[in-house]
Design a binder for these strands. Structure first.
Length: 917
RNA sequence: GGGUCCGUAGCUCAGUUGGUUAGAGCGCCACGUUGACAUCGUGGAGGUCGGCAGUUCGAAUCUGCCCGGACCCA
């Protein structure tokens, strides 16, 4: 084995082996266990969120597979309508071609080409993470099978009246020229203005002043509204004003919606360009006049002067014209929420169009109940509140998109504009008896989330009743970030309950977002993005700077980002390997909070991998040539029994952690066991046995225990760090005659209560305390490790005597002790002292220790003990504590007090003695 | 405006039904290269658990208010 662990030498080969051996396919035996991957964008690339998300899923999947479950991790990718279309359009733009130049079919071909070219990127990166997905079952949301499911769902919902077509206001993205759903709108407060405009009464008797943040919409105004009880305007209701610049005569109406306190109490009403105004327009039967084109330029319904102007250009022109006409009262700075598209970043417009909607009220009801009655459980639980709040206030879901890339809506129109919905044009013709009437299919495609809402069952073969569907659905747990609870999780629950009559998953594990070290969201524009692959393979500074500053939307940020990057990573990023990265994510995956990712932590777990690697080298070196398969004639020592006992404890702890989806606790337990118990203590304790005068039976037992515990620890750690554990296991397991091609197929370690050994636990606890007592003196007195000590034991009971005899070799070896003996009533030489229970551990000072320093050291300890004693005494003298606290707690306090007092006495006596020198 | 979460050592975070000497990693200080590992070992320093009240024999943990920060919805 190499002296240091080098992940780059093993990872790729091992993954290829696993895949070739079919390790990730369901075994066909045991209870089913299934996780559905949240399908990443097919043309996307892996970011830290994916890496976190997949680490959690893979750990769970590998754990359950090793536990003997029939485990399926279903993999696949999403066609990501808008995102993918935008990307391909931008690429074409670079060649000077627009999608309209190509036409629909040719453009879609281009997208498929791009998918073929780049679609392997994300799946390759999933492999780099070690994700044990079943690649033989890989699906894509636009596959024929999945498209069939989409169509089926659409048609059935339409038949039941739960999908309908309607003309109403939608959020319109004028850059992408498509409708988007409410969820795709991001409202952010921005600096703007509010304009007060004068609207003259038609009869010339006066004017009203209205306030608006979007003056250009006045071109579509259909009324001015006031509050019905607003006395200032009561007399005007029913009169009309003449709309400036336009000349249209529009009524003054009264409506409760108007807030008389806000502005002047008069509101201009533009039903076709504002959601509130739209509702009011319907109440008052106002005309809906659309004054915008689909790119948000002014259309032909406005006065000619403004036609063709962009909306913001028109805004300026209109304000100028109001001012020129003396109709502008004032302009004020104003903070206002601005709706932007989450993909394009463009300011959205409420826009009157025909769209397809899902009526969600009826679907939401059972979806709420499923969570209320516990069929679906969110972890952590508080997300259920978020879910309920959203589900109880759902608006119908706009599912049509004016894009080309996606599932085309299965609806056809005849020349009279009648709509027919069906699985195909032929079916539509036949069912509606249309003969050879000319039909054209709806041009729109479905929202991407429509197909991903079906993911848990469409990937398993629905609408066919496949064996996989019967076996693996409902799935066990959905692992996801909270950012897509509404987009995806809620919709999956609704659709699955509707079409399967069962929940899509029993649990939803909601994890946090991966942020940068300072807690800021990672984004290209901030230049703080880390690429998980760079953490695995490493990256030099120049390449990293290039990556972060190249191809920026705002090139002016590049300098700043470059500077920050050079400062943060002066030497680039080390190659930490996949296992270290995964261990970091696992260790930080505590109860759903965001994680601030810091590299020091990854480096720490890289070191942990190296520790495990080197411990293995030590073990293998010590068992070279030995037969480890015979288990008779072995004489396990106390410490052999102890480490086996500890192994049971950690196995139980890890099991508990996995059951509660607490990967951080599992990781922590594994880390502590391997490093702090197995390496720091056990390996050190085997040295005097293997290199000393122990019998062959004792040595053989120790060799076997070294290997057996290592082998079990590898299996224990495998779900979190699959590569290094596999690599080592393939060497270790055969030596123990434990077969199998892969650790991923080996059984998960299971605690056996019979192997818990209280006697060994107590003995080693004593040994450790005694060793530490000597080491503390050595450390604090700056005695170099090379200086072997004489140690005297004093006081103590029969058990201390027995343990001192049993543990002598270990004690001497670990504490660097040359001579160990009992004082047996003799006058103690001047010594530095430690106390273990009733026993004094004395290191004679002659030439080694400065009395002053020792007095200071002991005095500090005395002060601490006195504080402890005082606190405990006051507790115990409190009658209420003694009478009300459980006896167990009281006894514990009493024991603590006695112990502290005894120790204090010894230390004080020692201080007195040293002072008399 | 409604809601959620967070505030524990210099930094990043654990702390499961209230009872621990409040922990870990990194960083810091000292000593150290005895053949697993300097990607290391040993020892040490460092916290009135954001603040104030309250419940309780007992509060980092439960309740209320306040301060500070993040996010979601409107």
């Amino acid at each position: 084995m190499e002296k240091a662990f080098d992940p780059s030498l093993i990872e790729k080969d091992l993954y290829a082996q696993w895949e070739a051996q079919g390790c990730f396919k369901p075994s066909g035996t045991g209870d089913p266990y299934c996780i559905m991957i949240p399908p990443p964008n097919v043309t996307g690339s892996l970011h830290m969120g994916h890496a976190f998300n997949n680490t959690i899923m893979d750990a769970l999947v590998r754990y359950h597979r090793m536990k003997g479950h029939d485990t399926l991790w279903q993999v696949g990718t999403d066609h990501a309508g808008i995102a993918t279309q935008m990307l391909v359009e931008r690429k074409l733009e670079g060649q000077g071609v627009s999608r309209h130049d190509l036409g629909r079919d040719a453009f879609i071909d281009k997208v498929w080409d791009w998918k073929a070219e780049s679609g392997g990127n994300i799946t390759g990166q999933l492999r780099r993470l070690g994700s044990s997905v079943d690649w033989s079952r890989e699906r894509f949301t636009m596959d024929e099978d999945l498209s069939r499911a989409v169509q089926e769902v659409f048609v059935q919902l339409h038949q039941e009246g739960l999908i309908y077509r309607g003309k109403r206001l939608v959020n319109w993205d004028p850059v992408l020229k498509t409708a988007v759903s409410d969820l795709e709108v991001e409202n952010e407060e921005e600096n703007g203005h509010i304009w007060h405009l004068r609207y003259p009464l038609s009869d010339g008797s006066g004017e009203l002043v209205v306030a608006t943040t979007r003056p250009e919409t006045m071109l579509g105004d259909q009324a001015v509204a006031v509050h019905p009880e607003d006395e200032r305007y009561a007399a005007l209701v029913g009169k009309t004003i003449t709309l400036p610049l336009v000349g249209r005569e529009i009524p003054i109406i009264a409506d409760d919606y108007v807030d008389p306190e806000f502005g002047t109490g008069c509101v201009k009403i533009t039903p076709a360009h504002d959601f509130n105004d739209y509702e009011m327009g319907k109440r008052h039967d106002l005309p809906m006049l659309n004054v915008l084109n689909d790119d948000a330029s002014i259309n032909v319904h406005a006065p000619e002067k403004y036609q063709g102007m962009d909306r913001f250009e028109a805004r300026k022109a209109i304000v100028a014209d109001f001012e020129a006409a003396g109709l502008l009262v004032e302009v004020k700075d104003h903070r206002l929420p601005v709706p932007r598209g989450d993909r394009s970043g463009a300011v959205l417009e409420p826009y009157l169009t025909d769209q397809w909607y899902v009526a969600v009220a009826e679907l939401a009801k059972p979806a709420i109940e499923a969570v209320e009655n516990g069929d679906i459980e969110f972890v952590p639980k508080q997300w259920e509140n978020t879910y309920f709040a959203w589900m109880r206030d759902l608006q119908d879901w706009c599912i049509s998109r004016q894009l080309w890339w996606g599932h085309r809506i299965p609806a056809w129109y005849d020349e009279a504009g009648n709509v027919y919905v069906g699985r195909s044009e032929a079916e539509v013709r036949q069912q509606n008896d249309l003969g050879d009437r000319v039909l054209t299919q709806d041009n729109d495609v479905l929202d991407t989330w429509f197909s991903s809402a079906l993911w848990t069952f469409s990937t398993l073969g629905w609408p066919d009743e496949t064996p996989e569907l019967a076996k693996f659905h409902p799935t066990d747990v959905l692992v996801t970030g909270f950012d897509i609870i509404f987009f995806w999780v809620a919709r999956m629950i609704m659709m699955t309950l509707k079409f399967r009559g069962e929940v899509p998953f029993k649990k939803v594990y909601v994890h946090g977002l991966v942020r940068d070290g300072e807690g800021k969201k990672m984004s290209k524009s901030k230049g703080n993005v880390l690429d998980p692959i760079d953490l695995i393979d490493g990256i030099d500074l120049e390449t990293l700077v290039q990556k972060r500053t190249g191809n920026m939307m705002q090139p002016q940020m590049a300098k700043k980002i470059e500077k920050a990057t050079r400062k943060e990573f002066p030497d680039g990023i080390d190659a930490f390997g996949t296992d270290a990265l995964r261990f970091t994510f696992a260790a930080m995956a505590s109860t759903g909070r965001d994680i601030n990712f810091n590299l020091e932590r990854v480096a720490g777990y890289r070191n942990f991998c190296n520790k495990l690697w080197n411990a293995t080298r030590f073990v293998l070196m010590n068992v070279e040539g030995a037969d480890l398969t015979q288990t008779e004639e072995l004489k396990p020592s106390l410490v052999d029994r102890w480490i086996v006992s500890r192994l049971q404890a950690v196995e139980a702890e890890v099991e508990r952690a996995f059951a509660n989806l607490r990967l951080d606790m599992a990781a922590q337990a594994i880390y502590e066991f391997i490093w702090n118990e197995y390496c720091d203590w056990y390996l050190e304790l085997t040295k005097p046995v293997l290199n000393g005068e122990a019998s062959e039976a004792e040595k053989a037992a120790t060799r076997r225990t070294l290997m057996a515990v290592l082998e079990a620890a590898l299996r224990l750690a495998h779900p979190i760090m699959p590569f290094i554990t596999e690599e080592i296991w393939q060497t270790v397991a055969p030596r123990l005659a434990q077969g199998g091609d892969s650790i991923s197929q080996a059984p998960y370690p299971q605690a056996e209560s019979g192997k818990i050994d209280p006697e060994a636990d107590a003995a080693v606890a004593w040994l450790k305390s005694t060793v530490v007592a000597v080491r503390t003196i050595r450390g604090e007195m700056n005695i170099p490790p090379s200086k072997k000590l004489t140690v005297l034991l004093n006081a103590g009971d029969a058990q201390d005597r027995e343990l001192a005899t049993t543990c002598e070799t270990w004690l001497k070896s670990l504490a660097g002790v040359a001579e160990l003996s009992w004082l047996d009533g003799a006058e103690a030489p001047v010594s530095s002292m430690g106390v273990v229970g009733e026993m004094e551990v004395l290191v004679p000072m002659a030439g080694l220790i400065d009395a002053e320093a020792e007095i200071a050291r002991l005095s500090k300890e005395v002060t601490r003990l006195e504080g402890d004693i005082q606190r405990t005494e006051s507790k115990l003298s409190n009658e209420k504590f003694v009478s009300k606290a459980p006896a167990e707690v009281v006894d514990k306090e009493k024991a603590k007090l006695a112990d502290a007092k005894a120790t204090l006495d010894r230390l004080q006596a020692q201080v007195v003695k040293l002072n008399t020198l």
